[in-house]
Design a protein around this nucleic acid. Structure first.
Length: 301
DNA sequence: CGCTTTTGACCAGCGC
DNA sequence: GCGCTGGTCAAAAGCG
Protein backbone atom coordinates (compact mmCIF):
# COMPACT_ATOMS: atom_id res chain seq x y z
CA UNK A 1 0.00 0.00 0.00
CA UNK A 2 1.10 3.47 -0.77
CA UNK A 3 1.32 5.24 2.54
CA UNK A 4 2.33 8.50 0.99
CA UNK A 5 -1.34 9.20 0.61
CA UNK A 6 -1.58 9.23 4.37
CA UNK A 7 0.18 12.51 4.70
CA UNK A 8 -1.52 14.88 7.08
CA UNK A 9 -4.54 12.72 7.43
CA UNK A 10 -4.39 12.91 11.16
CA UNK A 11 -7.59 13.35 13.04
CA UNK A 12 -5.61 15.45 15.43
CA UNK A 13 -7.73 14.31 18.31
CA UNK A 14 -5.35 15.60 20.90
CA UNK A 15 -5.49 19.12 19.73
CA UNK A 16 -8.58 19.53 17.67
CA UNK A 17 -11.18 17.54 19.47
CA UNK A 18 -12.88 20.58 20.84
CA UNK A 19 -12.58 22.26 17.52
CA UNK A 20 -15.12 19.90 16.06
CA UNK A 21 -17.78 21.79 17.88
CA UNK A 22 -16.67 25.15 16.69
CA UNK A 23 -17.59 26.69 13.43
CA UNK A 24 -14.61 26.05 11.27
CA UNK A 25 -14.73 28.33 8.26
CA UNK A 26 -15.64 26.20 5.30
CA UNK A 27 -13.18 27.86 3.02
CA UNK A 28 -10.38 27.21 5.40
CA UNK A 29 -11.16 23.54 5.58
CA UNK A 30 -11.47 23.17 1.87
CA UNK A 31 -8.30 25.03 1.21
CA UNK A 32 -6.49 22.81 3.61
CA UNK A 33 -7.93 19.73 2.08
CA UNK A 34 -7.15 20.67 -1.45
CA UNK A 35 -3.71 21.78 -0.55
CA UNK A 36 -3.20 18.29 0.80
CA UNK A 37 -4.50 16.79 -2.36
CA UNK A 38 -2.43 18.96 -4.68
CA UNK A 39 0.72 18.71 -2.67
CA UNK A 40 3.51 17.13 -4.60
CA UNK A 41 4.83 13.91 -3.16
CA UNK A 42 7.84 14.69 -0.98
CA UNK A 43 11.26 13.30 -1.68
CA UNK A 44 11.86 9.87 -0.22
CA UNK A 45 14.14 10.80 2.68
CA UNK A 46 11.64 13.30 4.00
CA UNK A 47 8.85 10.91 3.28
CA UNK A 48 10.26 8.23 5.56
CA UNK A 49 10.65 10.66 8.43
CA UNK A 50 7.28 12.14 7.88
CA UNK A 51 5.72 8.72 7.70
CA UNK A 52 7.32 7.70 10.96
CA UNK A 53 6.05 10.89 12.51
CA UNK A 54 2.62 10.29 11.07
CA UNK A 55 2.58 6.74 12.31
CA UNK A 56 3.43 7.90 15.80
CA UNK A 57 0.66 10.42 15.77
CA UNK A 58 -1.89 8.00 14.41
CA UNK A 59 -0.91 5.48 17.07
CA UNK A 60 -1.36 8.09 19.75
CA UNK A 61 -4.76 8.99 18.37
CA UNK A 62 -5.85 5.42 18.28
CA UNK A 63 -4.76 4.99 21.83
CA UNK A 64 -6.81 8.00 22.73
CA UNK A 65 -9.79 6.59 20.88
CA UNK A 66 -9.43 3.34 22.74
CA UNK A 67 -9.38 5.16 26.03
CA UNK A 68 -12.44 7.17 25.08
CA UNK A 69 -14.32 4.03 24.11
CA UNK A 70 -13.35 2.29 27.32
CA UNK A 71 -14.42 5.25 29.37
CA UNK A 72 -17.70 5.41 27.53
CA UNK A 73 -18.37 1.76 28.26
CA UNK A 74 -17.58 2.27 31.91
CA UNK A 75 -19.91 5.25 32.10
CA UNK A 76 -22.64 3.26 30.49
CA UNK A 77 -22.14 0.37 32.90
CA UNK A 78 -22.35 2.72 35.85
CA UNK A 79 -25.45 4.41 34.51
CA UNK A 80 -27.11 1.11 33.81
CA UNK A 81 -26.39 -0.34 37.22
CA UNK A 82 -27.72 2.84 38.81
CA UNK A 83 -30.86 2.54 36.77
CA UNK A 84 -31.33 -1.08 37.71
CA UNK A 85 -30.83 -0.26 41.36
CA UNK A 86 -33.34 2.53 41.09
CA UNK A 87 -35.82 0.20 39.43
CA UNK A 88 -35.35 -2.31 42.21
CA UNK A 89 -35.99 0.29 44.85
CA UNK A 90 -39.07 1.65 43.05
CA UNK A 91 -40.83 -1.39 41.68
CA UNK A 92 -44.21 0.30 41.63
CA UNK A 93 -43.13 3.34 39.73
CA UNK A 94 -46.40 4.71 38.37
CA UNK A 95 -44.94 6.21 35.26
CA UNK A 96 -43.24 3.06 34.16
CA UNK A 97 -46.02 0.73 35.03
CA UNK A 98 -48.70 2.80 33.39
CA UNK A 99 -48.75 0.79 30.23
CA UNK A 100 -48.78 -2.93 30.13
CA UNK A 101 -50.53 -3.04 26.85
CA UNK A 102 -48.57 -4.45 24.04
CA UNK A 103 -49.43 -1.96 21.38
CA UNK A 104 -49.12 1.08 23.59
CA UNK A 105 -45.64 0.21 24.67
CA UNK A 106 -44.65 -0.46 21.11
CA UNK A 107 -45.77 2.92 19.86
CA UNK A 108 -44.25 4.74 22.79
CA UNK A 109 -40.96 3.12 21.99
CA UNK A 110 -41.19 4.35 18.47
CA UNK A 111 -41.82 7.86 19.61
CA UNK A 112 -38.82 7.90 21.83
CA UNK A 113 -36.18 7.65 19.19
CA UNK A 114 -34.26 10.47 20.74
CA UNK A 115 -33.40 8.53 23.87
CA UNK A 116 -31.30 5.70 22.59
CA UNK A 117 -29.69 4.82 25.89
CA UNK A 118 -32.99 4.02 27.49
CA UNK A 119 -34.04 1.98 24.51
CA UNK A 120 -30.83 0.20 23.98
CA UNK A 121 -31.38 -1.96 26.97
CA UNK A 122 -33.47 -5.05 26.82
CA UNK A 123 -36.85 -5.29 28.42
CA UNK A 124 -35.31 -5.69 31.84
CA UNK A 125 -37.12 -2.61 33.00
CA UNK A 126 -40.37 -4.02 31.79
CA UNK A 127 -39.73 -7.21 33.61
CA UNK A 128 -39.75 -5.28 36.85
CA UNK A 129 -43.33 -4.29 36.38
CA UNK A 130 -44.48 -7.34 34.48
CA UNK A 131 -43.07 -10.34 36.26
CA UNK A 132 -45.76 -12.49 34.78
CA UNK A 133 -44.76 -11.78 31.22
CA UNK A 134 -41.09 -11.97 31.90
CA UNK A 135 -40.91 -15.65 31.30
CA UNK A 136 -42.93 -15.44 28.14
CA UNK A 137 -41.69 -12.35 26.44
CA UNK A 138 -38.37 -12.65 24.69
CA UNK A 139 -35.54 -10.24 25.21
CA UNK A 140 -35.70 -7.31 22.87
CA UNK A 141 -33.10 -4.83 21.86
CA UNK A 142 -32.86 -2.05 19.36
CA UNK A 143 -30.06 -1.12 17.03
CA UNK A 144 -29.75 1.94 14.85
CA UNK A 145 -27.89 1.77 11.58
CA UNK A 146 -27.29 4.74 9.38
CA UNK A 147 -27.67 4.17 5.66
CA UNK A 148 -27.73 6.35 2.61
CA UNK A 149 -31.16 7.90 2.18
CA UNK A 150 -31.23 6.63 -1.38
CA UNK A 151 -30.80 3.10 -0.19
CA UNK A 152 -34.31 1.72 -0.01
CA UNK A 153 -33.42 -1.77 1.14
CA UNK A 154 -34.28 -2.70 4.70
CA UNK A 155 -31.16 -4.74 5.23
CA UNK A 156 -29.19 -4.50 8.44
CA UNK A 157 -25.99 -6.45 8.28
CA UNK A 158 -25.35 -8.01 11.64
CA UNK A 159 -23.60 -11.17 10.59
CA UNK A 160 -26.58 -13.41 11.09
CA UNK A 161 -28.66 -14.84 8.29
CA UNK A 162 -32.28 -13.76 8.16
CA UNK A 163 -35.31 -14.82 6.21
CA UNK A 164 -37.89 -12.19 5.46
CA UNK A 165 -41.42 -13.36 6.14
CA UNK A 166 -43.45 -10.21 5.93
CA UNK A 167 -43.62 -6.51 5.29
CA UNK A 168 -46.16 -4.05 6.53
CA UNK A 169 -46.81 -0.34 6.48
CA UNK A 170 -47.59 0.81 9.98
CA UNK A 171 -49.73 3.69 11.03
CA UNK A 172 -47.15 5.75 12.86
CA UNK A 173 -44.49 5.47 10.19
CA UNK A 174 -44.95 5.81 6.42
CA UNK A 175 -41.93 3.62 5.81
CA UNK A 176 -42.68 -0.09 5.51
CA UNK A 177 -41.61 -2.37 8.33
CA UNK A 178 -39.91 -5.62 7.36
CA UNK A 179 -40.18 -8.78 9.47
CA UNK A 180 -37.31 -11.24 9.58
CA UNK A 181 -36.78 -14.61 11.21
CA UNK A 182 -33.40 -16.12 11.86
CA UNK A 183 -32.66 -18.54 9.05
CA UNK A 184 -31.92 -21.16 11.72
CA UNK A 185 -35.61 -21.07 12.65
CA UNK A 186 -37.49 -22.87 14.05
CA UNK A 187 -34.60 -24.03 16.19
CA UNK A 188 -33.62 -20.39 16.69
CA UNK A 189 -36.55 -18.25 17.83
CA UNK A 190 -34.98 -14.86 17.11
CA UNK A 191 -36.94 -12.35 15.08
CA UNK A 192 -36.15 -8.86 13.99
CA UNK A 193 -38.11 -5.94 12.66
CA UNK A 194 -36.47 -3.32 10.49
CA UNK A 195 -37.99 0.05 9.80
CA UNK A 196 -36.72 3.46 8.87
CA UNK A 197 -36.79 6.03 11.62
CA UNK A 198 -39.61 8.56 11.42
CA UNK A 199 -37.25 11.33 12.37
CA UNK A 200 -34.40 10.43 10.09
CA UNK A 201 -35.12 8.40 6.99
CA UNK A 202 -31.48 7.54 6.64
CA UNK A 203 -31.51 5.66 9.92
CA UNK A 204 -32.69 2.06 10.04
CA UNK A 205 -34.13 0.88 13.33
CA UNK A 206 -33.70 -2.84 13.85
CA UNK A 207 -35.62 -4.37 16.72
CA UNK A 208 -34.40 -7.80 17.81
CA UNK A 209 -36.59 -10.18 19.75
CA UNK A 210 -35.10 -13.12 21.53
CA UNK A 211 -31.61 -14.50 21.66
CA UNK A 212 -29.78 -16.69 19.19
CA UNK A 213 -29.24 -20.20 20.47
CA UNK A 214 -26.48 -20.92 17.98
CA UNK A 215 -23.02 -19.47 17.36
CA UNK A 216 -22.47 -16.41 15.20
CA UNK A 217 -22.38 -17.75 11.62
CA UNK A 218 -19.93 -15.28 10.17
CA UNK A 219 -17.42 -13.45 12.27
CA UNK A 220 -15.54 -12.58 9.11
CA UNK A 221 -18.35 -10.58 7.66
CA UNK A 222 -18.19 -8.34 10.65
CA UNK A 223 -14.51 -7.56 10.56
CA UNK A 224 -14.22 -7.14 6.82
CA UNK A 225 -16.93 -4.52 6.92
CA UNK A 226 -18.47 -5.06 3.51
CA UNK A 227 -20.61 -1.99 3.91
CA UNK A 228 -18.97 1.39 3.82
CA UNK A 229 -22.06 3.06 5.17
CA UNK A 230 -21.84 1.72 8.65
CA UNK A 231 -20.18 -1.01 10.58
CA UNK A 232 -21.87 -3.21 13.09
CA UNK A 233 -19.51 -5.01 15.37
CA UNK A 234 -21.44 -8.12 16.02
CA UNK A 235 -21.50 -10.10 19.15
CA UNK A 236 -19.06 -12.85 19.89
CA UNK A 237 -21.83 -14.92 21.28
CA UNK A 238 -25.55 -14.69 21.27
CA UNK A 239 -25.64 -12.70 24.46
CA UNK A 240 -22.61 -10.57 23.90
CA UNK A 241 -22.91 -6.86 23.22
CA UNK A 242 -23.72 -5.46 19.84
CA UNK A 243 -22.09 -2.16 19.08
CA UNK A 244 -23.19 -0.08 16.15
CA UNK A 245 -20.58 2.35 15.02
CA UNK A 246 -21.69 5.03 12.70
CA UNK A 247 -18.74 6.26 10.71
CA UNK A 248 -20.73 8.52 8.52
CA UNK A 249 -21.51 10.90 11.33
CA UNK A 250 -18.68 13.36 11.36
CA UNK A 251 -19.86 15.65 14.10
CA UNK A 252 -19.06 14.63 17.57
CA UNK A 253 -21.32 12.58 19.76
CA UNK A 254 -22.67 15.61 21.53
CA UNK A 255 -24.83 16.38 18.56
CA UNK A 256 -25.92 13.01 17.36
CA UNK A 257 -28.81 11.56 19.27
CA UNK A 258 -30.20 8.41 17.82
CA UNK A 259 -27.17 7.35 15.86
CA UNK A 260 -24.76 7.22 18.71
CA UNK A 261 -22.66 4.16 19.11
CA UNK A 262 -24.74 2.05 21.30
CA UNK A 263 -24.64 -1.15 23.21
CA UNK A 264 -27.31 -3.61 24.01
CA UNK A 265 -25.40 -5.09 26.83
CA UNK A 266 -23.06 -3.28 29.15
CA UNK A 267 -20.33 -5.83 29.44
CA UNK A 268 -17.66 -4.93 26.92
CA UNK A 269 -14.44 -6.48 28.18
CA UNK A 270 -11.54 -4.10 28.03
CA UNK A 271 -9.41 -6.66 26.32
CA UNK A 272 -11.99 -6.90 23.62
CA UNK A 273 -11.98 -3.17 23.24
CA UNK A 274 -8.23 -3.21 22.98
CA UNK A 275 -8.33 -5.93 20.40
CA UNK A 276 -10.94 -4.16 18.35
CA UNK A 277 -9.00 -0.93 18.47
CA UNK A 278 -5.69 -2.52 17.58
CA UNK A 279 -7.13 -4.54 14.74
CA UNK A 280 -8.77 -1.45 13.36
CA UNK A 281 -5.52 0.44 13.73
CA UNK A 282 -3.70 -2.13 11.70
CA UNK A 283 -6.30 -2.32 8.99
CA UNK A 284 -5.35 0.04 6.15
CA UNK A 285 -8.77 -0.35 4.58
CA UNK A 286 -10.42 0.88 7.72
CA UNK A 287 -8.11 3.85 7.86
CA UNK A 288 -8.76 4.65 4.24
CA UNK A 289 -12.51 4.45 4.77
CA UNK A 290 -12.26 6.63 7.86
CA UNK A 291 -10.28 9.31 6.10
CA UNK A 292 -12.55 9.19 3.09
CA UNK A 293 -15.62 9.58 5.29
CA UNK A 294 -14.18 12.47 7.24
CA UNK A 295 -12.77 14.33 4.28
CA UNK A 296 -15.98 13.72 2.41
CA UNK A 297 -18.01 15.26 5.20
CA UNK A 298 -15.73 18.26 5.34
CA UNK A 299 -16.16 18.87 1.64
CA UNK A 300 -19.89 18.51 1.69
CA UNK A 301 -20.37 20.88 4.59
C1' DC B 1 -35.27 -27.38 -8.70
C1' DG B 2 -34.90 -25.48 -4.32
C1' DC B 3 -34.54 -21.51 -1.73
C1' DT B 4 -35.83 -16.71 -0.87
C1' DT B 5 -38.74 -12.74 -1.40
C1' DT B 6 -43.11 -10.57 -2.21
C1' DT B 7 -47.67 -9.55 -1.04
C1' DG B 8 -52.52 -10.16 -0.13
C1' DA B 9 -55.20 -12.67 3.25
C1' DC B 10 -55.96 -13.90 7.70
C1' DC B 11 -55.81 -13.69 12.79
C1' DA B 12 -55.61 -11.75 17.40
C1' DG B 13 -55.53 -7.88 20.53
C1' DC B 14 -57.29 -3.55 21.68
C1' DG B 15 -60.35 0.64 21.93
C1' DC B 16 -64.77 2.41 21.38
C1' DG C 1 -69.75 -6.45 18.36
C1' DC C 2 -67.18 -3.84 15.14
C1' DG C 3 -63.38 -1.56 13.17
C1' DC C 4 -58.53 -0.63 13.36
C1' DT C 5 -53.92 -2.16 13.68
C1' DG C 6 -49.75 -5.05 14.04
C1' DG C 7 -48.05 -9.52 13.25
C1' DT C 8 -47.98 -13.89 10.72
C1' DC C 9 -49.08 -17.15 7.08
C1' DA C 10 -48.71 -19.07 2.67
C1' DA C 11 -49.22 -19.11 -2.32
C1' DA C 12 -47.06 -17.07 -6.15
C1' DA C 13 -43.17 -15.06 -8.24
C1' DG C 14 -38.30 -14.42 -8.66
C1' DC C 15 -33.66 -15.93 -8.76
C1' DG C 16 -29.33 -18.57 -9.04
Amino acid sequence: MDYSSWHSTSLDLNINLHRLHEEVPKKHVENNFFSLEMKKPPVKEESADALAEELKRVSAENKKLTEMLTEMCENYNTLRSNLMEYMRKNPDNKELSSSNKKRKSESSNNNNNTTPMAESSSTDEESCKKPKEETIKAKTSRVYVRTEPSDTSLIVKDGYQWRKYGQKVTRDNPSPRAYFKCSFAPSCPVKKKVQRSVDDQSVLVATYEGEHNHPHPSQMEVTTGSSSRSMTLGSLSSSAPTVTLDWTKSKASSESKNANPKMDSPEVPHTLVEQMASSLTKDPNFRAALVAAISGKMLHK
